[in-house]
């Protein structure tokens, strides 16, 4: 039983991180209708950026969190202005291919420039050590990441549901034509939202750097799990991404505890089952299922 509780905690901690990482993907799809395949590469850029920042200036984790997030926001704005916007009016598959191409470019660029080995990055001061309650325990950093992620997801959700900006963005998503008729400049919100999504990917990368390998390929596999998360949650649904993030985290932790090397397969089994039962995902829009 102790083991089960321990696995559950680890799953929840992991789930918080998945939720945050998938959130940007969900936001971008929800507002722009773009399946951003470069999300994994931007996650990688966030982590690599943090490592380079440390190497070049000595600025550590706490400084990297805001700096990299802002830098990635600007990078996202640049991507949208230079490339993505021109394809928005075409079939969505064009942007899907575009972002896939951007991924290949970014990954190979980092490989050529910085090699394939992991770049050094250590735990931030103050987050070493563990928290023990009875016989279950979690590392302080795991707890920090989970709490930070959940708080951020909550903030994004509040932003989108309780503020005027959020309402405009949601209205533009629901029905761009009618929003435009009501005098809302829909196009104006597209760029910052894309930048915001990319910033979230970069932020997730920074959060990952102290606890995993920081290299060019780190996003290539991660993006597959993220897609599983957003597909399970329902493409474009923010609540869906968060709930599915936790679900996938739990499935992976139980999988590691009880099913060994099948732990990742279980995520895709879950995805397949969800698609069979609810083709639009757990929180996907009704119309997507029709």
């Amino acid at each position: 039983m102790t083991a089960f509780i321990q696995y559950t905690l680890q799953g929840l901690a992991l789930g918080g991180f998945y939720a945050l990482a998938a959130l940007g993907l969900a936001v971008i799809f929800g507002v722009l209708g773009v399946v951003n395949f470069s999300h994994g590469a931007c996650y990688m850029l966030g982590a690599v950026g943090a490592a380079l920042l440390l190497d070049a200036t000595g600025l550590g984790f706490w400084a990297a969190l805001p700096i990299i997030t802002v830098a990635m926001f600007l990078f996202g704005v640049l991507l949208e202005r230079l490339f993505v916007q021109w394809l928005l009016r075409l079939d969505p598959l064009y942007n899907f291919l575009l972002t896939f191409g951007i991924t290949l470019f970014l990954v190979d660029f980092v490989k050529r420039r910085y090699g394939v080995s992991s770049l050094p990055y250590e735990l931030p001061a103050g987050l070493q050590g563990r928290v023990n309650v009875g016989s279950v325990s979690l590392s302080s950093y795991q707890i920090f990441v989970a709490v930070f992620s959940v708080a951020l997801c909550l903030a994004v959700w509040l932003l989108l549901t309780k503020t005027r900006v959020g309402m405009i963005v949601r209205a533009s998503t629901e029905d761009a034509e009618r929003s435009r008729a009501l005098g809302i400049n829909v196009g104006r919100w597209v760029t910052p939202v894309f930048g915001f999504g990319i910033a979230l990917a970069g932020l997730a990368g920074v959060l990952r750097a102290p606890t995993g390998s920081v290299n060019a390929d780190m996003g290539s596999f991660f993006i597959i799990i993220l897609f599983a998360v957003v597909v399970i949650g329902g493409l474009g649904s923010i609540l869906g991404a968060v709930v599915a993030g936790f679900l996938v985290g739990l499935v992976e932790a139980y999988g590691q505890g009880y099913a060994g090397s099948f732990s990742q397969v279980l995520i895709f089994v879950l995805m397949a089952v969800v698609i069979l039962v609810r083709p639009s995902g757990l929180f996907g829009r009704e119309e997507a299922a029709s």
């Binding site: 079939d91 969505p92 598959l93 829909v186 597909v231 995902g281």
Partner: peptide
């Protein structure tokens, strides 16, 4: 700016969801 994205909601989302799923699957394979 003239956008046609809104009309996508009823049609294209489903193929898109399927495409995303298919790509996810094929990358695993």
């Amino acid at each position: 700016m003239q956008r046609t994205r809104n009309s996508m909601s009823s049609f294209a989302r489903r193929p898109l969801a399927l495409a995303a799923t298919a790509v996810t699957g094929s990358l695993v394979l």
